[in-house]
């Protein structure tokens, strides 16, 4: 157990990562990054700086030219290494349509647990539990193409959470969400008992959901303490009508 202790402390550890889609042009250069247990980190960066690329490297979908990817204290190099670790890292795609594979909600949410070797009864139970937890149980038998953007996002998150990951990586989760769905997502994320790492441009969203914010700039990542994120009181049409943000 004592040996495992250090490994559970550091969930993600990237050491001297360099990566470029073409050989002569690196987009990540000598990058170091750590995510510890129960940390909630936000990652900000301009378009095309390689935020999603970074996430794909962590998940082993892209192989860096140089550097080490250490997940849960274990160095991962081959596809097989990553395959074992992947269920522990939940990745939520920017576009929910990329993530959702089956035409009905329940089937899709249960897909992950079934792949992990759960029996159909257990998988069904788990999927239903997650849907209840996210407050979208009523969508259970709905068809994916009749769902709104916000509902699709929540379904894709449910599909990831159903695999009981230890870490969650969210790629631009608020894109295309309205005020209500966004508030719902904030509420869900802050209540989760998970470490996560959010890639986003939505500063207000990051301020509400994360403790630390990193910046991806000049091909590397750094913690910028000079930038203080703060929550915005927001304005929206029909704001004078009494409403709540749950």
């Amino acid at each position: 157990m004592a040996k495992q202790n250090t490994s559970t402390e550091e969930l993600i550890n990237l050491q001297n990562i360099s990566f470029g889609y073409t050989k002569d042009k690196l987009i990540l250069d000598n990058l170091n990054f750590k995510l510890k247990l129960s940390e909630r980190i936000g990652l900000i960066g301009a378009n095309g700086t390689g935020k999603t690329t970074l996430a794909f490297i962590i998940l082993g979908l892209l192989t860096p030219q140089q550097g080490k990817v250490k997940l849960f204290g274990k160095i991962c190099q081959t596809e097989k290494d990553f395959q074992q670790i992947r269920p522990k890292i939940g990745f939520v795609f920017q576009n929910a349509d990329d993530q959702i594979i089956f035409p009905t909600v329940l089937e899709d949410v249960a897909f992950g647990p079934l792949n992990l070797g759960l029996s159909s009864e257990q998988a069904l139970h788990k999927a239903e539990n997650i849907l209840k937890k996210l407050g979208i149980e009523h969508l259970k038998h709905r068809n994916i193409f009749n769902l709104s953007g916000g509902e699709k996002k929540l379904v894709s998150i449910a599909g990831v959470l159903a695999m009981s990951p230890k870490v969650l990586i969210l790629d631009e989760p608020t894109i295309g969400l309205d005020e209500h769905s966004r508030a719902k997502l904030i509420n869900i994320l802050t209540k989760l008992d998970l470490s996560y790492f959010i890639i986003s441009h939505d500063y207000d969203f990051l301020a509400r959901t994360t403790q630390k914010q990193y910046i991806l700039k000049n091909k590397t990542i750094f913690l910028d303490n000079t930038i203080v994120l703060h929550k915005h009181e927001h304005a929206h049409p029909l704001g004078y009508i009494t409403h709540d943000h749950t």
Binding site: F56, L59, L61, R86, F93, D98, Q99, I101, G112, M163
Partner: peptide, 9 residues
């Protein structure tokens, strides 16, 4: 990618 991430084998 999504299939791989969700443990499809």
């Amino acid at each position: 990618k999504a299939l791989l991430l969700r443990g499809f084998n």
